[in-house]
Structure formats: structure tokens, C-alpha cells
């Protein structure tokens, strides 16, 4: 049955509670940390001679679409009524938004060590110990807006700049692609200062703490952020019906290091072309 992913700001207290409970249950069973590990494993740079799939590559969109589906299915095995909400960071921009409330994701980290002190994912609650982290720290960390060098969340204008590009992606199909919706939303630029962080990347930077590093999945906001990124791909397809929804469609000169639309994408070996539409599985409200 087709289910709905809702805007997090529209969730009732009961819906938030069910989502949080399912996430905590997944953590208790050890499965949540498998998702953290998988994201770490697939974050490969585009300059290291490797074959990046999850980031800095055209498959940024389909890879994370499938990653979210795996996570959502794991949640639904615990509570079939749960789906992954999305966070529209162009609208809910305040550190005091209900997103960061006691009954949902909890708030900012404290100044001294960036430890999250409120909500269900605060270390003190005993339900959220970091097991797969870059550091030995066992508590979830956040540092909203990086106070020592302040940065804002992406604006509507910045997102519109990415959405306007009618090309999905372009050569050289990596973090240096100057044209294309994919890299503009993912957010790699050659800019300086805060200008170098765009859209998706800027949100990771704005939250800070765990969201900044390899183990970003440790912060459950990761899923709400990427649910919105997923929605943006669908919205972009609607706005550019004449454009190819994914590029490169097939292997060609210059695409040797990326997965083309008709090739199997690891680790699931599904073709990106099979992940372009999702209307038979879920829709966005």
C-alpha cells in the first residue's frame, strides 16, 4: 500500500512519538548502527581513485533514495504506521523549531562539548549511545550554526538556483560538475568562506557535530534531511518534464568511474533508472 511521507512540522505529538519509538527500537536491536556503518563505508571521495556512488556522483539521488527506503522498511517492521518525515530547512530555520523539541529530535548541543542534552537522543536518557563514531565520544553532538564562524541554513533562493537547472548532472560527473541539479543540490562548489557550502552540504555544516563527519547517520535528523532531498528530486522532475530524470543514462566516454542509469548500483545492485519514480511505494504530502 502506498504510504505518505509528511512534513515534520505537520506531525502530531503522537506521530512524533511513534517515529521516535521505532528509531529507538531499531537502535536497541543494533540495526541502526548497521545503517551508520553503511553510510561510512560508501562515503568515498571522487579523487581517491575509487568509484564514488553515494556522494560526489550522479547516483547521490538514487543511492540515498534506496538507503532511505531500507531504513523506512526497517522502521515499518517495528511499526507499520511509521514513515520518514521530511524537514524543509528553507522554512523551519530556527534552532527553536518544534523539530528540535523535547518530544521529537531534541535540541542543540551545549556550548562546552556540543553534547545534546534534551530529547530522546540525549546521552543522559540512556537510549542513544554512539557506537559507530569517528571519535571515542559516546554522546550525540550538535553545534547549530557554528557560533565561532556563523553560518545560516540554505535559503529559498539558494535552493531555487539548484532547482532551476534543467540538466540533471553533467561531466565530469563528480563534485566539480559546474552544471546540473545534482551537484547544485548536493552542494559542492569552488566558493570560499561560507559560500562553499550549498544546500545539502550546508545543512550538514549548519547542524554540526556528528552531522559534519563520516558518521552523520548517528543523528536521526539525517533521515529527515534526506527525505527532503528525496522530495526535491521528485519536485525537480515535475518542474522539468522534458529533462532526463537521471544522467548519464548509459556508459559512455568519461563516465567510467560512475554508475550509469542502466547499470547495477551497489550495494543493492539496482539500476538508478528503476529508482526514478516512487509513486507506487510512497508519496509526499
Amino acid at each position: 500500500m502506498v504510504y505518505t511521507r509528511q512534513n515534520q512540522s505537520a506531525l502530531t505529538a503522537a506521530q512524533k512519538r511513534r517515529f521516535v519509538s521505532a528509531v529507538l527500537a531499531l537502535k536497541r536491536k543494533g540495526q541502526y548502527d548497521d545503517f551508520v556503518r553503511m553510510h561510512v563505508e560508501f562515503y568515498v571521495g571522487d579523487g581517491s581513485g575509487g568509484h564514488p556512488v553515494a556522494h560526489m556522483a550522479p547516483t547521490f539521488m538514487p543511492w540515498h533514495r534506496r538507503f532511505l527506503l531500507e531504513f523506512e522498511r526497517a522502521l515499518q517492521r517495528i511499526d507499520p504506521g511509521v514513515s520518514v518525515p521530511y524537514w524543509d530547512w528553507t522554512v523551519d530555520r530556527s534552532p527553536h523549531s518544534s523539530l528540535w523539541g523535547e518530544g521529537f529530535l531534541g535540541g542543540n548541543g551545549r556550548r562546552s562539548d556540543r553534547r545534546v542534552m534534551t530529547g530522546p537522543f540525549a546521552y543522559g536518557g540512556g537510549h542513544w549511545t554512539i557506537k559507530v563514531g569517528v571519535t571515542e565520544g559516546e554522546f550525540l553532538t550538535r553545534e547549530f550554526g557554528r557560533p565561532r564562524d556563523p553560518i545560516e541554513l540554505p535559503t529559498k533562493d539558494e535552493l531555487a538556483w539548484a532547482m532551476r537547472d534543467s540538466l540533471y548532472d553533467s561531466t565530469p560527473w563528480n563534485s566539480t560538475s559546474s552544471r546540473g541539479f545534482r551537484n547544485k543540490v548536493e552542494g559542492w562548489t569552488s566558493g570560499v568562506g561560507n559560500g562553499r557550502f550549498r544546500n545539502h552540504n550546508r545543512v550538514h555544516r549548519w547542524i554540526g557535530g556528528h552531522m559534519l563527519g563520516a558518521a552523520s547517520v548517528n543523528d536521526p535528523v539525517f533521515w529527515l534531511h534526506h527525505s527532503f532531498i528525496d522530495l526535491l528530486w521528485s519536485r525537480w522532475q515535475r518542474q522539468h518534464p522534458q529533462s532526463a530524470a537521471f544522467l548519464p543514462a548509459t556508459k559512455a566516454a568519461g563516465t567510467e568511474r560512475v554508475v550509469a542509469g542502466d547499470e547495477p548500483m551497489p550495494p543493492w545492485d539496482v539500476k538508478p533508472s528503476s529508482l526514478i519514480k516512487h509513486g507506487n511505494l510512497y508519496r509526499y504530502a
Binding site: G30, Q31, D34, F35, M38, V40, E41, F42, Y43, V44, G45, S48, G49, G50, H51, V53, F67, E70, A74, P264, P266, P267, D269
Partner: peptide
């Protein structure tokens, strides 16, 4: 749970 397979792991690459 999700498990990587079929690719060079980042441990190897990085």
C-alpha cells in the same frame, strides 16, 4: 541490516 558488497570498501580506499 544493510551490508556493503560488491564494491571496494572505503576502508580499503581511504
Amino acid at each position: 541490516g544493510p551490508a556493503g558488497r560488491g564494491v571496494v570498501s572505503r576502508r580499503t580506499v581511504v
